[in-house]
Simulated scan of single mutants.
Amino acid sequence: MSSGVTYDSCYRIVNLLEDSHKELSKILTDEDIRQLDLSCSKVQDSEFGDRFSEPMVWIGIYIAIASFFCILAMAADLLHGFRNKKFWFPCKYFSLNAASITVITITMKLPVDLSSGMHSYVGQATKVGSLAFMCIMMANLMPSLASMDNNILLANIIGFCILIITIIVNICIQINTCVIADKALNFVAFSVHFDFVIVAYTYMAMSNL
């Protein structure tokens, strides 16, 4: 930690106090020692939490790269549709297949992640924004279904449905545990309350249509 206090030194103090408990019994009670031991546990949790959160930067870069490839492929389909005067945007570069489902799974890591709380306003906006991005990708993938035969279509639909169901179940769990909830954004002159739950339900309903 920044203060230089570690859980090892904290526990060492607790052990010394327990060893000299007879001499210090007039000053420290058992409740004081238990409280100090609890504080040591919190210091330990904080140290390990900081250690476990170190890879989050690389995970964010990993997600950003996957999202960039999805956006690039969708933009290429958009330009291809305008160039050939096909305004339903044919899926030449971004179609539903095993590769695209894998990339979409990477881009949807934040909404399905139950281990990191992300209780801040920005964290919840990121989770909900990922759901919006999922709806955009689904809309761009739909035209590619018409060019598949029955066997390939069934396999791709099953794989994609499993992904969608997983995302919806994880979002419902986060709503139930209040990880996604109403958040207040405080400015200098006013405060705005944004209900992320309603937005999350809206995007989940759109993904099922």
Rank of each mutant, 00 (worst) to 15 (best):
E18V: 10
W58L: 13
E31K: 06
S39E: 00
A75Q: 15
E47N: 02
I61H: 12
M56A: 13
L16Q: 11
Y7H: 15
L17I: 09
F68T: 08
L36H: 00
W88K: 09
Y7W: 15
A75W: 06
S3E: 08
S25N: 07
T29K: 08
F87N: 10
I13K: 13
K26I: 14
L16D: 11
D45I: 06
G4T: 04
E47V: 02
V57G: 14
E18W: 02
N15K: 15
H80P: 02
L28K: 02
S67P: 05
S25Y: 04
F82S: 03
N84A: 11
E23A: 05
N15S: 14
A66F: 01
Q35G: 06
S67V: 07
A66Q: 01
R12D: 11
I33Q: 06
S67R: 13
S2R: 12
S46M: 09
S46V: 02
G4M: 09
G4K: 11
H21Y: 15
D30N: 14
S20P: 03
E47D: 00
L16T: 07
S3L: 13
V14W: 00
V43K: 07
N15L: 14
L17R: 03
F89C: 09
S46L: 15
K26G: 06
C10W: 00
I61T: 15
R34S: 12
A64Q: 09
K26D: 10
F82G: 01
M74E: 07
K42N: 10
G4E: 10
W88N: 15
D45P: 00
C10I: 03
W58R: 14
V5H: 05
T29I: 06
E47A: 07
M74T: 00
